[in-house]
Design a protein around this nucleic acid. Structure first.
Lengths: 217, 217
DNA sequence: CGGCATGTGTAATCGCTGATTACATTTGAC
DNA sequence: GTCAAATGTAATCAGCGATTACACATGCCG
């Protein structure tokens, strides 16, 4: 019965009951999964941290998966920003260089935001296909990569006979694999005595030099 | 109270109470995760399928994670077998060819046994480091790859200045990335109109030709 | 100003889960 | 044949996601 004091609203004054529960919930969720991982996340803990009852989140997210999908959308935004930032920070119009810079940016972001990376990559803990934002933004990233490859091809930076679809898939598999290895904890076993970032950048560099015009011819 | 008929033991006769609960549990677990995925697996369902009470599994596996780790050990055995089989089936002593064959075998196995692959790759749903079998067998696979690369290097099949540790890491990241993309459902988005197996083999082939001696020099 | 539909949070509850405990039964070694 | 150890059962616990009925605040209508 007994409700908590109505006289001093804890959160933003002059707002709804709570203030802005949606924002608070997303923040609380992000914080909790960064503390204890996605597996151990419970809606009740999120509610407690947000200072509301366990049933409150369901007013805004019909299911736990929906909440996590919303978090994934935020994460995808940040990833997109990180990639464009990596591209613009590199002041160059060389497609191959940009291609690599984006790869490095992708890996850096994944390592800096492991749980977010894990969430947007998963198709079981979120409802990826139900979010047009996630789908579209993912496709947009791919389109950017294809565009860069086309430019590189026109500049003769790629072997002429190469299948662009295979190159795209290879690049994606490579970066995705590196990121997942790091996040899944496989890296130390497969590249001893080297910091993850250095190992990953080295591998990426090797991949790029192998992929793009082999010195001459 | 009332127990089930003792007069006709369902399982193997002339054995313990149940027969061999451990084996039965492992089989039931494998079957259930193949039907409904790892996320939705519950010990109670496993128990029900095995025909025992919900508490019974805890006599043999102190925790759910322990049970799944045991399943992972079985899976790792099968993966190792698949890799050696892929190697022996290819009647060739060419290190580069063997290297690729193992890669193909790895991808084939992952696609044929997605949930098993998922389990042995995870460090959250199983206790990988607690199982010396998993750790050792994983290291053994890596050692085999290193050995092949050393042979290839001696035969001049690799660029002489290349860092072998980076090559190993790259190869692993590449195959792991491909397998995970397929299993995580990313493949269709990154290589439209192509069956997963064909796309993955094509990408792997591209990777190998780029990695090993570029035609000449 | 007063009433009231709507939006928002609470409380209680459901069925399920992993895990623990006390107890019953079977087994095999002595 | 006896008995400690091994194995399975039953009952129970706390915690989970989700649903429902209810309490309250808000802002719009007149």
């Amino acid at each position: 019965m007994q409700r908590k004091s109505r006289k001093d609203p804890v959160a933003k004054p002059g707002a709804y009951h709570h203030g802005d529960l949606v924002t608070t919930l997303l923040a609380a969720t992000t914080a909790l999964i960064e503390e204890r991982g996605v597996e151990g996340l419970s809606l009740r803990e999120v509610s407690k941290r947000a200072g509301v009852s366990p049933g409150a989140p369901f007013r805004h997210f019909s299911t736990k998966k929906a909440l996590l999908t919303a978090v994934a959308e935020q994460a995808m935004d940040r990833l997109s920003d990180a990639l464009t930032s990596a591209q613009t920070k590199l002041k160059s119009a060389d497609p191959a260089a940009i291609y690599e810079a984006i790869g490095v940016g992708y890996l850096d972001w994944a390592l800096s935001n492991p749980t977010h990376f894990q969430i947007i990559s998963s198709r079981t803990i979120i409802d990826f296909d139900a979010s047009s934002k996630l789908v579209d933004q993912n496709a947009a990233i791919r389109d950017r990569m294809v565009d860069l490859l086309l430019q590189a091809q026109q500049l003769g930076q790629l072997p002429p006979a190469v299948d662009l679809n295979l190159v795209i898939l290879s690049s994606r598999a490579f970066t995705y694999g590196l990121a997942r290895m790091a996040i899944d904890g496989h890296l130390s076993g497969w590249h001893p005595r080297e910091t993850p970032t250095k190992a990953m950048r080295g591998a990426l560099r090797l991949f790029m030099t192998q992929l793009f015009v082999p010195h001459s011819r």
